[in-house]
Nucleic acid binder design. Sequence first.
DNA 1: AAACGAGTTCCACTATGTGAAACTTAGTTT
DNA 2: AAACTAAGTTTCACATAGTGGAACTCGTTT
Lengths: 267, 267
Amino acid sequence: MAQRDGDGTIGKALSVMDQVANFGRPVKFSELLDGSEFPKATLFRYVQALTNQRMLRFDPDRNTYAPGARLMRLAHAAWEQSSLAPIARPHIDRLSEIVGETVHLAQLDNAQVLYVDKRNATQPIAMFSEAGKVGPAYCTGVGKAMLAFLDEDTLSSVIAQQSFHQFTPSTLKNETELRAELAEIRANGYGFDREEHEPSIICVAMPILTPRGRILGALSVTSSTTRTNLAAMEKLVPELSKTSQAIAAEAQDWRFPDLNKSQTMGA
Amino acid sequence: MAQRDGDGTIGKALSVMDQVANFGRPVKFSELLDGSEFPKATLFRYVQALTNQRMLRFDPDRNTYAPGARLMRLAHAAWEQSSLAPIARPHIDRLSEIVGETVHLAQLDNAQVLYVDKRNATQPIAMFSEAGKVGPAYCTGVGKAMLAFLDEDTLSSVIAQQSFHQFTPSTLKNETELRAELAEIRANGYGFDREEHEPSIICVAMPILTPRGRILGALSVTSSTTRTNLAAMEKLVPELSKTSQAIAAEAQDWRFPDLNKSQTMGA
DNA sequence: AAACGAGTTCCACTATGTGAAACTTAGTTT
DNA sequence: AAACTAAGTTTCACATAGTGGAACTCGTTT
């Protein structure tokens, strides 16, 4: 039941993937090596296997590795079927049009917030460049909205993983402050970001819950203190709530299309 | 030097990922099992490890597995640094505005075409739903444009993997026809899709090449026979060519920002 | 209450992955 | 050009990590 990383070869190989991804640029083998817990030969084998599998791409001109194409392919599937985004899309479109502000759709990935969709009221959207982004859970509207509805076991494990880095003077400082805030969110059914992550950026956020109370994700409307204030944002709650419920309802109906049909696989 | 899949545990685990992704919907363990080359206990361990690693997401209500959140995170990195998309974005915007038609940006992933960006002249774009999609190489404009500039070794291996499924009456039927077409594309520097993949859908496609002639990707402008014809599309070639060259030039300049700086990792 | 099927755990066996060290380039320096 | 150096790649004896048949648990059906 170990929750830690590990998971044998698979976990180790994926940690290499993370490492490459985190460099943010094509990276040389030797750069990976110092910064790796693995001995040279071992790392080398991982990197080779991952390259063969097109999870990494090797640039023979520059002798560098970068995340590979197979990832995008798999992520496409992940986005389509595992995330709320495809279901939520029309609802988010509608919401962003009504409120005329940026709308975010996020899910919880371990202890972090993973943005799966975004609608920018004014300009058309970015693609992977936005979806796939991650952010802290303890100081974003969507993050707190989701944490508020976790069961105690998961919650305490997740809280333990928060950095409580002080992004702004308003950032919550510790577990106690966060728990108080979560209780309030639970009571209200929605929460705010009071410039906790970026100065002058505020938002209202609402969880998306299954009928059973399992947290699916969260929605938020973001704006800035130069244009509006929290009291005005709070007026959007009914719209947010309507949208969240519509998404939850539709997610629920999403049953398996045809259970007695033989499937093809792609091994 | 085996090019086949395999790659030990890593390859096997990834083949399970593919399998899950290909289902296109949340899938039960037993569904994976019949359709898997692995014995029950083995498959189970893979699926567990992958779930721990958040490469798969387990839905405890339904007892199903779906592609997980970590994928999207990794794919975000892949899209940002390994694909041409971020570099190409402004160029594609410009091109789509000028030509007023749908523009695709694709790369080659093994033997298939991987779409990494798309600009729809009229309506704003879709996100992961478009990027990450894959298509056949032998019967799409971008596919053929890229095949045409592969070295013979790679090409013959890639051709061997084409299905030559007849999507339409115009679909190329075999290696011979394809090779003839590729020679023509090589001679002209650009190619067409003559309703080979979908009836009434036509396109002009142009490869994006490094100065050394390595193929980076391809661009295409797509339209339909109800609105235009190939001769008219061919008039767009100069614009396409300009865009392709601009992208190639910029990709080239993309050197490493700072080589002597210690890095942090995310193992 | 017995039979079934899906999902999970056990455990002896061995295939797989391990990593120190040796080797091979390719790029500098003397 | 020989001698050094660092990066990347291969080898191989060894043991850890993965394997899979079979047994078990749980929830559902007859």
